[in-house]
Simulated assay, not measured.
Amino acid sequence: MSLNRTRSALAAAALTGAALLAAPGAAQAAQPTQPTRTEGTATARTWPGVWPYNGHTATVRASRSTGAAKTGTVTSAGRKCSEDLCQAYSGGSYTCWSGGPSGNSWIGVLDSKNRLGWVAAKCVGVSRWS
């Protein structure tokens, strides 16, 4: 088979494959999905939460600022994040403790009544809530 015929055959195969993948009902690549929040059931997925970092408790604030009202504390019991991925948002700058980490990213957390508060991101550790 000549080089041009080989190229033509490969091009035709590629076009046929692309057409098959574009057809309705064709197999598609798996897309990542967010875990579903189904608390209170035996099959509940875990939800991310925050815990004290390096043995230090962290203050929960009403907004993303150290000047905002204190609404609670992150203790060894932890706090659930308000979003599935513990998304951090920009806010006021902070220092966790004297000589400790500093930054301006804040994570939304929930209290026992599902009220939103904010904790300095670098002052807590993030992991899965069981």
Rank of each mutant, 00 (worst) to 15 (best):
I107W: 00
Q87N: 14
A121Y: 05
W118E: 01
G40Q: 12
M1N: 14
K80F: 00
S112M: 13
A12Q: 12
R128E: 10
A22M: 09
S93A: 15
G99H: 07
W118G: 00
V124A: 01
N104Y: 12
S8T: 09
S93I: 06
Q28E: 13
V124H: 06
T36L: 14
Y53A: 09
G17E: 13
Y89G: 03
S8H: 11
M1F: 13
A77V: 03
A14M: 14
A69C: 02
C81E: 01
R37H: 12
S8P: 03
S112W: 10
W47I: 01
S127R: 09
Y94N: 07
T38L: 14
V50P: 01
Y53L: 07
A22P: 00
T6A: 15
K70N: 11
G92Y: 04
C123L: 10
G67R: 14
S112Q: 13
A62R: 08
L110Y: 05
A69T: 07
G67L: 12
T38R: 14
Y53D: 08
A27G: 06
S93Q: 13
G99Y: 10
R79G: 01
R128I: 04
T59Y: 01
R79A: 02
K122V: 08
R37S: 07
Y89N: 06
G108I: 04
Y94F: 06
A77E: 13
L110E: 04
S112C: 11
G125K: 11
V124E: 04
Q28V: 11
D111L: 08
T73D: 12
T95C: 10
T73S: 03
I107E: 01
V119Q: 00
K113N: 13
S82L: 06
K113P: 02
P48I: 08
R37N: 08
H56Y: 14
S90M: 05
Q31H: 06
K70V: 12
S76F: 08
A19D: 10
S93P: 09
G103T: 02
R45A: 14
Y94W: 13
G103Y: 00
A18I: 07
G108W: 00
V124P: 06
T36F: 10
G67K: 14
A14I: 13
V74D: 02
I107K: 00
A12N: 10
S98E: 11
T16V: 15
R64M: 06
W118F: 04
T66G: 03
R7T: 11
G92W: 02
S76Q: 14
N104T: 02
L15R: 15
P24C: 06
T38Q: 15
A88F: 06
W106T: 08
A26S: 13
L10F: 15
A26E: 10
N114C: 01
D111R: 05
K70A: 04
T75C: 07
C96Y: 09
A12W: 05
V126Y: 00
W47G: 00
Y94I: 04
V124R: 01
T16E: 15
G108F: 04
G99D: 09
A121V: 03
S98G: 13
V126S: 00
T16A: 13
A23W: 07
